[in-house]
Design a protein around this nucleic acid. Structure first.
Lengths: 142, 142
DNA sequence: TTATACATTATAACAATTCTAAACTATTGA
DNA sequence: TCAATAGTTTAGAATTGTTATAATGTATAA
């Protein structure tokens, strides 16, 4: 259980003012045991369920992007219709369950990280990410 | 150089009527030496550049999705703002050049395909795809 | 405690995509 | 060969996810 004052410090130290909206979002995102995968929509719904006063959708977008830019969140691309975010910002891979549209972290015992043997000339590798799409056996592939 | 009659057969054999719009799109997509990576917008622009009579944007969408569903195209997700399609439908990986927004096929001598050691219970793996984001050295990571 | 820079908000704007319903065309089979 | 019909194209409207705008509100530094 992370204390509110810790979030305040965290925000301040990265040059973000600790507003009550940002603190609420911190609480929702980072006060949990497991990695959280979400879309902005998920998060917005979550907030309005838990809060009597609402946070504007624009603020949710702003905050999530601010957190991403500060390195507190990672953006994951699965399909083009929406963005997923991940509270696990370490370099890791994902399963994507096509039945439920759920994103699941892939642990080191589940995958052997791919080795890049040759890179594009003059370019730096910024990330290497594996996405494993799974579905129940009788499901047709998307 | 693939002949028009071959495209007609290909379309017919997969239950798609060979209309002139579809044939034109076949020609553009499949009558080339190399893999083609494109967005719907790229394709639409390409068509209107090469054609005096236009193909409706809705038709371009319909056709690309029909081709994808028949397995002639593959959809690739890099970021959430648009969909990329690939004429190479084999299982392979990609570099994404963040400077130019260009997608580049990754050949076998460039990557060692990751091994999945453990799968999600009761699910079938439909695809395993690696995306390597690259940019010039002094560029900031997106 | 006030000035100011930063945040929030509702709403408008936007871009990619899908839907709709009418007009059109390829195919089937009398 | 020529309808009938089932599938296709089309323009434009609608939808969805997201970003921009500009006015109002708030945290912070001096």
């Amino acid at each position: 259980m992370i204390k509110n004052s810790e979030f305040i410090d965290k925000l301040r130290s990265s040059g973000l003012r600790p507003t009550k909206q940002r603190l609420k979002i911190c609480e929702l995102l980072f006060n949990r045991d497991n990695t959280f995968h979400f879309t902005i929509n998920d998060l917005a719904k979550n907030i309005s369920r838990q809060l009597n006063e609402k946070i504007s959708l624009a603020t949710v977008y702003n905050t999530v992007h601010a957190f991403k830019n500060k390195g507190y969140l990672k953006e994951i691309s699965i399909n083009s219709d929406k963005s997923y975010f991940d509270t696990n910002t370490t370099n890791h891979h994902h399963f994507f369950d096509q039945d439920t549209n759920e994103l699941i972290d892939c642990t080191d015992d589940e995958i052997e990280t791919p080795k890049i043997k040759k890179n594009i000339l003059g370019k730096k590798i910024n990330s290497v990410e594996v996405l494993i799409k799974v579905a129940t056996d009788n499901q047709n592939q998307k």
